Computed example of a mutant assay.
Amino acid sequence: MKFRRKPRETVDINLASLIDVVFILLLFFVVTTTFTRETQLRVELPEAVTGTPAPDSELKRLDITISADGVYSLNNHLLPKADLVTLMDALQKESAGDTQLPLSISADGKTPHQSVVTAMDAAGKLGFSQLRMTTVEAQVSP
């Protein structure tokens, strides 16, 4: 006995509504997301009991800031890489070849020693002679 087979129906899934829902969700996430871009490093300076404050009469200075993770910033501009060549290029560009500008290094108290030595090495190789290390004044306990 032969049975007749029913012809199979082709099943189509309508993707138009699914695409609409995905785009609405994407739009929702884009609108509700906040994009923050931090341009300054948070640095907790080490303490020192002795020292003299820097004079405020300087017009142009170079400030190297090093975070606890070893990320460099020159005059509040983050450097893309934390290596000697990048730091030297940024110093050369910012100083325009003037090695008489005062250069201060502000490193976090937990910064690896190698990061500070790299900053000092970059300044020395470029010929900077006025180098300062910044600290905060220690609280003297009675």
Rank of each mutant, 00 (worst) to 15 (best):
residue 120 M to W: 02
residue 107 A to H: 02
residue 79 L to T: 03
residue 61 R to C: 08
residue 29 F to G: 00
residue 131 L to D: 01
residue 141 S to V: 13
residue 1 M to D: 11
residue 24 I to L: 15
residue 47 E to C: 13
residue 68 A to V: 07
residue 57 S to W: 13
residue 37 R to F: 15
residue 132 R to Q: 06
residue 25 L to I: 13
residue 111 T to D: 03
residue 108 D to E: 08
residue 126 L to K: 10
residue 13 I to F: 14
residue 100 Q to D: 06
residue 84 L to N: 01
residue 91 L to M: 09
residue 8 R to L: 14
residue 2 K to L: 10
residue 52 T to P: 00
residue 50 T to P: 02
residue 118 T to G: 00
residue 52 T to W: 00
residue 139 Q to R: 14
residue 26 L to T: 08
residue 103 L to I: 08
residue 70 G to F: 00
residue 54 A to Y: 15
residue 142 P to T: 06
residue 54 A to Q: 13
residue 125 K to L: 06
residue 117 V to Y: 09
residue 4 R to V: 15
residue 132 R to I: 02
residue 88 M to S: 03
residue 51 G to D: 08
residue 99 T to K: 05
residue 30 V to D: 03
residue 65 T to A: 10
residue 113 H to N: 08
residue 55 P to Y: 08
residue 64 I to G: 04
residue 113 H to Q: 11
residue 129 S to H: 00
residue 24 I to C: 09
residue 98 D to A: 01
residue 129 S to Q: 00
residue 65 T to Q: 01
residue 77 H to Y: 04
residue 31 V to S: 08
residue 15 L to H: 13
residue 57 S to N: 15
residue 122 A to Q: 05
residue 9 E to A: 15
residue 69 D to G: 02
residue 30 V to N: 06
residue 61 R to M: 14
residue 32 T to D: 06
residue 127 G to M: 03
residue 17 S to D: 13
residue 44 E to Y: 09
residue 98 D to V: 01
residue 114 Q to V: 01
residue 81 K to T: 10
residue 142 P to M: 07
residue 52 T to I: 14
residue 77 H to P: 00
residue 37 R to N: 11
residue 98 D to Q: 07
residue 13 I to Y: 14
residue 1 M to E: 11
residue 55 P to E: 12
residue 66 I to S: 05
residue 56 D to A: 15
residue 13 I to W: 09
residue 12 D to M: 13
residue 120 M to V: 02
residue 8 R to D: 14
residue 31 V to H: 00
residue 46 P to M: 02
residue 52 T to F: 08
residue 83 D to Y: 00
residue 137 E to F: 06
residue 15 L to K: 14
residue 64 I to A: 05
residue 14 N to Y: 13
residue 95 S to P: 04
residue 27 L to V: 00
residue 122 A to M: 03
residue 47 E to I: 10
residue 4 R to H: 13
residue 3 F to H: 11
residue 120 M to H: 08
residue 19 I to W: 13
residue 46 P to A: 07
residue 41 L to K: 06
residue 117 V to G: 03
residue 66 I to L: 06
residue 59 L to P: 03
residue 55 P to L: 07
residue 125 K to P: 03
residue 125 K to E: 11
residue 99 T to V: 08
residue 87 L to C: 04
residue 131 L to A: 01
residue 20 D to G: 15
residue 121 D to F: 01
residue 96 A to C: 08
residue 38 E to R: 13
residue 127 G to A: 01
residue 117 V to T: 12
residue 93 K to H: 12
residue 78 L to V: 08
residue 118 T to Q: 04
residue 80 P to M: 06
residue 72 Y to N: 01
residue 25 L to M: 11
residue 54 A to W: 15
residue 9 E to H: 14
residue 98 D to C: 03
residue 102 P to H: 04
residue 87 L to K: 07
residue 9 E to R: 15
